[in-house]
Design a binder for these strands. Structure first.
Lengths: 110, 110
DNA sequence: CCGCTGTATTGACAAACTTCGATACAATGG
DNA sequence: CCATTGTATCGAAGTTTGTCAATACAGCGG
């Protein structure tokens, strides 16, 4: 009565996806995407106060999102006097592409 | 006493990042990355039972993660008899790259 | 020093996500 | 039909995440 096996056992992928998932999670938020896109559109740095102006969030919430991006090392910050300026990390795009590549990289080929 | 303005007002980016964020959120999980990578590594389809074998999750949890990926239209499924086979959506990589591109696309240039 | 402004951190609460057990649904074999 | 197996959904924990109010910290001007 045993049915035949459903399919030949597939190649099981057993890598550690935690780092890639953590990086993707850091960008998987509309406000954080807005922040990153604003930084990308402005080659010069952007002051925190501009984000608090632009986003419908209060100042601590903006600071929280900036911290998530900082912890993921997708942005860097630089305090000059009273103000803190953020900019995109140089390898942000590269690291995000690498995270996506963990999904699609085939056996030997690419 | 008023200090000078912190910086020239930056180009404010005000796009709708909800769709991109939703797509990225769907992949921002280690188990779902494992599922996607397994599907990518196996050009043929993969049966649900293989995921329940490979992941340290019970069957409803696996089904939940597959549903998240289905809702994001990153995978498609096909029931044949008792078994359900999943495969990567053809445009999965393209759509994820497009989501990342929402961040980095500059004004006119690229 | 003191007060002021910009930013970061903390604590509390609500919402969302993940997981599990139980159960329902689908398809096959008897 | 009925029992069995594979898969999906439901409902209820536990955990994480996002937001706010309050507060702390940093740097400047007086």
């Amino acid at each position: 009565m045993a049915m035949q096996r459903c399919c030949p056992p597939p190649k099981l992928v057993r890598r550690d996806f935690e780092p890639a998932a953590a990086l993707l999670k850091a960008v998987a938020d509309p406000y954080r995407l807005t922040i990153l896109a604003t930084l990308a559109a402005n080659d010069h740095e952007v002051c925190v106060c501009d984000f608090t102006d632009a986003l419908p969030l209060n100042q601590p919430a903006v600071s929280h999102h900036l911290r998530v991006l900082r912890d993921a090392e997708l942005v860097t910050c630089d305090r000059r006097g009273t103000w803190v300026y953020y900019q995109l990390a140089g390898d942000a795009l590269e690291r995000l592409n690498a995270a996506l590549a963990t999904i699609f990289r085939k056996k030997v080929h690419a």
